[in-house]
């Protein structure tokens, strides 16, 4: 038990902060309730997937600046393919787009390994490349999404065995998030491959000496990031009904959530839970500012400042860790 608390101490603290923020929200807006939570979960969804993608690359000791662009590529691909197609065809589209995400991530990873150029530079170049690819697929926002896909993240779902009073508080968007992340993360985290990802980010030399195939592990980490980015792109198309070729503000938000979530930018440390809670915290801050009728543009400034401050604090922690 104490072991669990110690290991997840940061995430537990973040969760307390989230609850505190929810209480504050309730105080600001006494009417805030199940529907508010529902829209929070929907708004957080793309950010959460972008963050999950960033988490795995950062744990492996890299960073992926091209996540938002990959989301744009998958989003427009899905929207363009589903435009005028049948509802059933959407299943094929979903599978294709997920594979596309994996392929893009693998390309990123292979380029990092082959060129020996630092991750941050390679993925900066790929940010532009994937952005260009998205623009080639759709020059302006457009396309369509299947109705059943749009429905997946709207409203609440009945869970057998649970009374309606409880399920009313569990939005479908949250379930989608938990299922999609869990299906990839849980088996990975416990596997030898998952351990290898941590090992490579923690100490590449020790990992090599422990018999880990360092380059292969890096490529896998980027590929999984691509998969999560594809999920994020799909979610974008599902919530807006169209695909937009210009990447959203997901890159910096993902880095900030990663840092706030307790994942060290140097690699090797942290989990997925903390950053995901951090995403909800950052979204809820925005909601609160809106509820307080703060100018949305000022909200953007405040949000940006929070992220920069979080990253600076992360830098401070890393500095102190190094000198200790």
């Amino acid at each position: 038990m104490t072991q669990t608390v110690r290991r997840h101490g940061w995430a537990i603290g973040l969760f307390a902060l989230l609850v505190l923020l929810l209480i504050i929200t309730k105080l600001i807006q006494p009417g805030y309730g199940a529907s508010g939570i529902g829209s929070l979960a929907r708004a957080a969804l793309p950010f959460a997937f972008a963050t999950a993608a960033q988490v795995i690359v950062v744990i492996a000791g890299g960073i992926d600046l091209s996540i938002a662009s990959m989301m744009a590529v998958t989003s427009v691909t899905a929207a363009a393919m589903m435009d005028g197609a049948s509802e059933e065809f959407a299943v094929v589209v979903v599978l294709f787009v997920l594979l596309l995400g994996i392929a893009m991530g693998m390309i990123n990873g292979i380029l990092v390994v082959l060129t020996r150029v630092p991750d941050i530079v390679v993925t900066l170049a790929m940010l532009f490349v994937w952005e260009g690819v998205a623009l080639l697929i759709l020059r302006a926002p457009g396309g369509a999404a299947a109705e059943w896909l749009k429905g997946i993240i709207v409203g609440t779902a009945g869970i057998p065995g649970l009374p309606a009073e409880i399920t009313a508080w569990i939005p479908k968007a949250l379930l989608v998030l938990v299922v999609c992340l869990g299906i990839v993360w849980l088996p990975l985290r416990r596997s030898r491959l998952g351990l290898s990802i941590y090992a490579v980010g923690s100490d590449a030399l020790a990992a090599f000496r422990s018999g880990v195939a360092v380059n292969r592990t890096k490529v896998v980490a980027y590929a999984v990031a691509g998969l999560f980015a594809a999920m994020g792109g799909l979610v974008l198309t599902m919530s807006t009904g169209i695909g937009a070729p210009i990447p959203g503000p997901y890159l910096l938000a993902s880095v900030a959530a990663v840092v706030l979530g307790g994942v060290a930018l140097g690699g090797g440390r942290g989990g997925l839970l903390g950053p995901i809670i951090a995403v909800f915290i950052l979204r809820l801050v925005r909601t609160d500012l809106t509820l307080l009728s703060v100018d949305p543009n000022i909200t953007t400034v405040i949000e940006g400042t929070i992220m920069v401050v979080v990253v600076i604090l992360g830098g401070l922690v890393a500095l102190r860790g190094r000198s200790a």
């Binding site: 150029v117 170049a125 940010l127 490349v129 260009g132 998205a134 080639l136 070729p245």
Partner: peptide, 19 residues
């Protein structure tokens, strides 16, 4: 050449020159 292809080209130029 469309805008998208231009960005791809610029991205690859940066990567290729750095590599």
């Amino acid at each position: 050449v469309p805008e998208g292809a231009r960005r791809i080209l610029f991205g690859f130029i940066i990567l290729a020159v750095t590599a």
